[in-house]
Amino acid sequence: MISRPMQITIALLVAAILGMGFYALKLKQKVETLHATSDNRPAAPPVTGDLQTVTLWVAHDDGTLHQQQMQLAMPNEPAARAMRVLQALVQIYTGKDSPHPLGAGSDIEDVYLVNGTTAVVDLNQTLADTHPSGIMVEQLTIVSLIQTLTANVPNVTRVKFLVGGKERDTLAGHEDLKMTYDVSTVSQVAQELQ
């Protein structure tokens, strides 16, 4: 058993280490910003971005998809844009009065773009592990993610899903995650779900 004074000491040390790390990160960012402004190259895209109106395809558990407008601070870089809109969509699903409830802690781990046309969407483990099981309910998640991504990142023609950085058979027992989705085929299905 660790004594209480020792516990407090450890907690302070951990806080100090985290604080130092954060301070170092801030310093590094400050140096980079100074460096960027002192040369002629264009400034790095802002982390937050400009406020833009974006379209999200939101699934409803009655088996329908609804286009929803939203104001979001959007970066310019395509993969970052994709990440931003997909996270916003998942936040709707995990939020209060969700039309398509997903498990608490569900999130998008990362989005990569290959050749600008193939998007690799890495879902977090919680999203897949807590996802409701069923053909329709799983399809709604995947189709809404693909539609939301392609509505905001043009030129993407194929989408591949990973879970926690790894390939997975199905989302929750039904929806095929082994395949790479063809965006135009998914778009036709999305029209039927509207």
């Binding site: 088996g63 069923g134 053909i135 329709m136 399809q139 995947i142 058979d169 199905t170 039904h174 929806e175 095929d176 082994k178 395949m179 989705y181 085929t185 036709q188 299905v189 039927e192 779900l193």
Partner: peptide
């Protein structure tokens, strides 16, 4: 309602194949 879905193992069936989900 009837529509396509990426539900396994339909892609692997060599013949007419459907999935029926009852609610």
């Amino acid at each position: 309602r009837a529509m396509p879905a990426a539900v396994r193992p339909l892609n692997n069936i060599e013949g007419p194949a459907i999935a029926l989900e009852v609610a």
